[in-house]
Computed example of a mutant assay.
Amino acid sequence: MTYVIELAGAAKRYDSAGPPALGPIDLSVAQGEALAVTGPSGSGKSTLLNLVAGLDKPTGGAVTVAGRRVDQLSEHGLARFRREQIGIVFQFFNLLDDLTVADNIQLPAQLTGTTRKKTAARAAELMEVLGIAQHARAYPGRLSGGERQRVAVARALVNKPALLLADEPTGALDTASGHDVRELLVDLHRGGQTIVLVTHDLALAQDCASRTIHLVDGHLAADSRAQAVR
């Protein structure tokens, strides 16, 4: 079995006097798996996501993503690794308002040195698949929340990452838009994309994930697998 994520005794402590924000924790996520990370506020969900994304370094243990020890990479190496191997979808989209939809999607690919012709072709493919091709020349501010999140997903997928991280991807959306993004995550998982989804929404986890872990006080309290994603 191929693992996209392997945490071995990974821990993060922000305050030497207090308890760790996370861990130590052992966790492996297989290729093609959709993992939901749940737990109350302060349980370590965001810390876990940041360690996997290389946005933060552990104070103990090892973090391996797509075969690379991300905790041992330099800042420059981490930035390059994230661009090539990790796509991140945030709660509040983080799109650039002065760029069109197409340009927002293409930007990460252009930063890796991919030619404009190839990035344009990949962006067009994703916009068609995600149902936003008609908005290619529009600016994010003119789109609905659900449409902006689809743009954010396309941007995250433009480099064909080994791993898609989604941090509360429906948290800022209305019910209808949230349902659209939920269906999108299900489709991506069915297509073989490895996903780690951080959410407070247990229904979202149940619908989108093949496996759910629950964190409490920085520790793994439960780990369950779904029989099937609908």
Rank of each mutant, 00 (worst) to 15 (best):
V151F: 02
Y139V: 03
R116A: 12
E128A: 14
N159S: 08
L95H: 04
Q149Y: 06
A120F: 00
M127A: 08
Q72R: 15
A124S: 14
A162S: 14
G146F: 06
S144G: 12
I86K: 13
A109G: 14
F93S: 08
L96W: 05
S74A: 03
R137A: 14
Q72F: 00
N104V: 02
R82D: 00
Q72E: 15
P169E: 05
T170P: 09
K118C: 06
L73D: 02
A152V: 08
R116F: 00
T170D: 03
V151Y: 01
A123K: 04
I105M: 02
V153K: 12
M127N: 02
V151H: 02
F90M: 11
L99M: 11
P108L: 06
G113H: 09
A102I: 13
R148D: 00
R150D: 04
L99V: 00
L130A: 10
I88H: 11
L163M: 05
A120R: 15
G146W: 03
A172Y: 03
A121G: 00
G113T: 09
R142F: 05
D98H: 13
N94K: 14
R80F: 08
R122A: 15
I105S: 01
D97I: 04
A79I: 04
T170G: 08
D167L: 11
Q85N: 15
P108Q: 09
S74G: 09
F92E: 13
F90N: 08
R150G: 02
D97Q: 14
A152M: 08
E147H: 03
L111K: 11
E168K: 11
R83E: 05
D103R: 15
A156V: 09
A121D: 12
P140D: 03
E147R: 06
L157W: 05
Q91R: 06
R155W: 07
T119N: 13
E84R: 15
G141W: 03
P161C: 06
S74T: 12
I105F: 02
L143T: 07
V158I: 14
F81W: 02
I86S: 10
F81P: 03
I88N: 06
L99E: 00
D103Y: 07
L126Y: 00
M127Q: 12
N104A: 02
A152N: 02
L78H: 09
S144N: 10
V151K: 06
G87F: 04
V101K: 08
R137N: 14
L111E: 07
A154E: 04
